[in-house]
Design a protein around this nucleic acid. Structure first.
Lengths: 214, 214
DNA sequence: GTCTATACGAAGATAGAC
DNA sequence: GTCTATCTTCGTATAGAC
């Protein structure tokens, strides 16, 4: 359900911003639209977050905290299992976390779409905001992937990792599923089926042999 | 060099818009920034294109015309060669066209970055603008890819095709290369090396076997 | 400490003069 | 074809009520 009036103003602003930034992007969302949805005053944004970008930063931090927690939990589980994790396991853990974070809550879909959008934002400062939040967890996955793929140069693993993040972002924001070439869509929304396809595609990409000119 | 004052106002507006939309995205670019760069009056946009979105549409159409021409030319060449083209050939033709269109001209980089941004725009109407322009050419590539990969369901080929378009867009807009996990960037800008890596990754993705639950 | 009311300059859009 | 004038809405800043 939508955030009730009794919730603290700060939280209502975060919830409304997450939903509206997810739907229309950062630049196209006016502060007044956010404050109206949150039943708050325009100036409340400036008070709690300093500026529109400060509000965005706070939404990113809250959203990534949930993702980072789950990704570290899954990585820990993979490491305590017998032997070091393979690339397929790592890709699955990384992708499904992004695809399912916040699933039970009603706002989960907004959270996922929001994060997908942030990765594609034109402003480099905004993308860096995201980059700073994933940095620690991505370091862990990157070294685990490098260990799982010793035949590839680290730069090549890093490139494929970036492709994974990018493609996952397009999946989350709906960009990958809502413009329809070929056969008609036939499945409404991003079902578990799409997550499976994405995981399979990315696993194949990681396990591909090195391109000749490394 | 920048468009000279002697060029027609319409063309100067298109050039300036392409460059500025490429750099800051659509929503974050003010019309006044465009008209200042084009040395034109604010109202000239409304006169020539009807609205800000009309200007965007015109820029998309001009940019896609160049890409579509080259893609059809390459596909024609592949088809007249001995035997039907393989997935690797098709991916290479599709990707390198996007990566090199407008190369000789100074504005080529802007054109590519602009098209990459359009694919990731939050507004579905803008993405549909792009979708309508690629539609005919993408139909040709899609059927050629489906013929080259008879062991895959058409829906699966279409999914991988969308992933290719999305990943190419991220490549073009710089999203894939400018946030740096792992080793430091080491190569400035999107060199021919990155195009090679992208082509190899996408070819592997297309040639991967079908996921079990088709 | 939290929040509201309100003002300021710049933005997108359009009507009508030239 | 091109420009000036004007309307509404945008992000931001300030002053003060609770």
């Amino acid at each position: 359900m939508p955030t009730s009036r009794s919730t603290a103003t700060r939280t209502r602003l975060l919830d409304a911003a997450e939903r509206l930034f997810a739907e229309h992007g950062f630049a196209a969302t006016s502060l007044r639209t956010v404050t109206d949805a949150a039943e708050a005053n325009v100036a409340a944004v400036n008070y709690h977050f300093g500026s529109k970008e400060g509000l965005l930063r706070a939404v990113v931090e809250r959203a990534m905290a949930a993702v980072n927690r789950e990704r570290m939990r899954l990585l820990g589980a993979l490491r305590t299992a017998a032997g070091p994790p393979g690339a397929a396991d790592l890709v699955r853990a990384f992708v499904t976390t992004g695809a399912h974070v916040g699933d039970p809550e009603a706002g989960g879909a907004d959270l996922r779409r929001f994060l997908g959008r942030v990765v594609c934002e034109p402003d480099p400062a905004i993308r860096r905001l995201f980059g700073a939040e994933v940095a620690p967890v991505e370091g862990e996955y990157l070294s685990a992937l490098t260990a799982a793929l010793p035949h590839l140069a680290p730069a090549e693993v890093a490139y494929r990792y970036r492709a994974m993040v990018g493609l996952l972002a397009l999946h989350q924001s709906g960009t990958l599923t809502d413009f329809h070439p070929g056969p008609p869509p036939e499945d409404p929304g991003a079902g578990a089926d799409d997550v499976e396809r994405l995981t399979a595609l990315l696993t194949a990409a990681f396990e591909a042999p090195a391109s000749e000119k490394t």
